[in-house]
């Protein structure tokens, strides 16, 4: 959609808080409450589009960057203001322990999260590639004016894009709470990795993003193992810069 949401990490943080409070107040495990987080976040994405993004879409790029960046600062400090800086954990999640996959032990929460994330990927890809609304969304992303001339309500498509994007973050955030602690700054590290992953794969391409995600995950893990754990993100970013030298549009990007 030609706009980068710098508040992406803060969306993730909010999703994690939703899952955490669902567990704290209603004893709902993240495995059960993730649709709720997705719904809340989709609402937030929709509201962000109508409240902020719509007004800067035609403006200078700096305004776009700072609109979402300001939102990030706002959401992060709002979380700190409301809930404090304490690290919180969902203790005793429904799924615990580990599973053996052909001799390789994987934590059960991590495995569940991976499967659910794959499921979300497949669903998103099918929606974008097969459904009429998904195609309309892609058309809007490619050329706003042409899409509008074809009778697509581009305004609605943009809002939908924001709602879907944020909804996916909702799923990811809720599942993450199964094995990661929640605090106001939690989003920053994840968001940066997310941008680099998407840019590595090529913008606007769901399967490429999945593949780039696998690459980033592998490089991160291998760099942590072979070089130094403290430098693993630096290696990931370096990989991204290397790829950019060779293919500025990302591995599978078209533009």
């Amino acid at each position: 959609m030609e706009i980068v949401n710098f508040a992406h990490g803060e969306f993730l943080m909010l999703a994690m808080y939703v899952a955490f409070f669902a567990w704290l107040l209603a004893r709902l495990d993240p495995v059960v409450s993730f649709p709720l987080a997705a719904l809340v976040l989709a609402g937030l994405g929709w509201a962000t589009y109508h409240g902020i993004i719509r007004w800067v879409l035609g403006g200078p790029m700096l305004a776009q960057i700072f609109a979402t960046f300001g939102l990030a600062v706002f959401l992060r400090s709002a979380a700190q203001f409301l809930w404090g800086v304490d690290f919180r954990v969902v203790s005793a999640p429904l799924l615990g322990g580990r599973a053996s996959l052909g001799g390789v032990f994987v934590g059960l929460p991590q495995l569940t999260a991976s499967v659910a994330a794959l499921g979300a990927f497949v669903a998103l890809h099918l929606f974008l590639a097969r459904s009429e609304t998904g195609l309309a969304l892609q058309a809007t992303a490619q050329d706003r004016q042409a899409a509008a001339l074809m009778g697509i309500d581009t305004e609605r498509m943009f809002a939908l894009g924001w709602a879907i994007g944020a909804g996916c973050v909702g799923v990811a955030g809720a599942l993450l709470t199964m094995f990661f602690y929640v605090f106001p700054d939690v989003g920053a590290a994840f968001a940066l990795l997310a941008y680099v992953t998407v840019a590595l794969g090529g913008f606007g391409n769901v399967p490429a993003t999945l593949l780039a995600g696998v690459i980033v995950g592998l490089v991160e893990a291998l760099a942590g193992l072979l070089i130094a754990p403290a430098l693993k993100y630096a290696v990931v970013f370096l990989l991204y810069l290397g790829v950019v030298l060779w293919r500025p549009q990302g591995l599978f990007g078209r533009f």
């Binding site: 305004a63 700072f66 609109a67 300001g70 939102l71 600062v73 400090s77 106001p184």
Partner: peptide
């Protein structure tokens, strides 16, 4: 007090500038 109220206002201000006075 660790309440980050200053940053809260700061963030809101950035959004307002970006939207109304780019």
């Amino acid at each position: 007090g660790g309440k980050a109220l200053d940053l809260l206002i700061y963030g809101a201000l950035i959004v307002l500038i970006a939207v109304f006075q780019p």
